[in-house]
């Protein structure tokens, strides 16, 4: 027996060693993590420090290149691009973040219920999800926003609902796997309540998958919010929206590329940053696993 008892000191050391090795191997994740932090900070406190109001027009100073006064230049109405990009980050982060969070929350509940109980409820839910996924995501979002009118909340709702099927399916498949494990059956045998089994036995094993999936949904939500904005169905003007800013700036591309460059670059950097974090999460939490759901 004695030879098997591992030295506690060595055990702790190896854990730290693993974490350090993980960070060293995941440079991109660390970069992505910093990008996300910077954007979230910008979204949270940035709007308090912007030099100009995002809607403040100054026709005399339209389409000015970046300068000390306007570090990202000005747009066709003479608005400060920097201020608009900073305030726009709030919209993207909050809308996409809330949409992803909504999808994760409802998808988690539906996935747990559907996976654990199975049967007719599960069948119906899965068919409903299939129907939802039969409509191209962007098209569905456009139709809904077009009919209901586009607002801060309707965009969140649309993005959230659009990603519920994907999250549900991921959670459901994990639940289907976990619920047949012996530890869940042992819990049933000793008479644990269903909430206990769902929340204390199954949920902890779902969380790593959910974290990875949630981060993936955040990436795609940013994608969706930006695309909707570009098509003019995002958060309505004059509130700044990166996608719409790009769309508005396109006619002036040859004379004032900066008006277009900064919001477009912001979208790109944020998307890439979150993707890196998501990938890192996947490698850390789900070694060997891949999610197969898209959009």
């Amino acid at each position: 027996m004695a030879i098997c008892v591992q030295n506690n000191q060595e055990y702790i050391h190896s854990k730290l060693f693993n974490i350090w090795r993980g960070i060293r191997r995941n440079t991109l994740t660390v970069i992505g993590f910093f990008i996300v932090i910077i954007f979230l900070l910008t979204a949270l406190v940035g709007p308090l420090f912007v030099p100009y109001h995002y809607a403040e027009q100054n026709i005399a100073k339209r389409l000015q290149p970046p300068s000390a006064e306007h570090i990202f230049g000005t747009d066709e109405f003479g608005r400060d691009v920097f201020s608009r990009v900073v305030v726009g980050s709030r919209n993207v982060c909050v809308v996409a973040g809330s949409g992803a969070a909504l999808a994760v929350f409802i998808g988690l509940i539906l996935g747990l219920v559907s996976g654990y109980w199975g049967g007719l409820l599960d069948d119906l839910l899965m068919r409903l999800m299939e129907v939802m996924m039969a409509i191209p995501g962007l098209l569905l979002a456009m139709l809904v926003l077009f009919s209901l009118g586009s607002s801060f909340f309707s965009v969140i709702l649309v993005v959230g609902f659009m990603y519920i099927p994907v999250v549900t399916r991921v959670v459901r498949s994990v639940v289907l796997d976990i619920k047949t494990r012996a530890f869940v059956e042992a819990a049933k045998l000793r008479g644990e309540s269903i909430p206990y089994i769902l929340l204390r036995e199954i949920l902890p094993n779902v969380l790593p998958h959910l974290a990875v999936e949630g981060s993936m949904r955040f990436v795609y939500a940013i994608f969706m919010v930006a695309s909707l904005g570009f098509l003019g169905l995002g958060v309505q003007p004059p509130a700044p929206d990166w996608g719409f800013m790009v769309s508005e700036a396109r006619p002036f591309f040859s004379v004032a590329p900066w008006v277009l460059f900064f919001p477009a670059a912001s979208i790109a950097i944020l998307v890439v940053g979150v993707s890196f974090v998501s990938d890192g999460l996947r490698r850390m939490l789900l070694p060997g696993g891949v999610s197969s759901d898209r959009y």
Partner: peptide, 18 residues
């Protein structure tokens, strides 16, 4: 390959067009 594909996987089309 994995890094580059990760970069483009969710980059909105209008951004990559630019």
């Amino acid at each position: 390959i994995t890094t580059v594909s990760m970069v483009f996987v969710a980059l909105p089309v209008f951004v990559s067009s630019l």
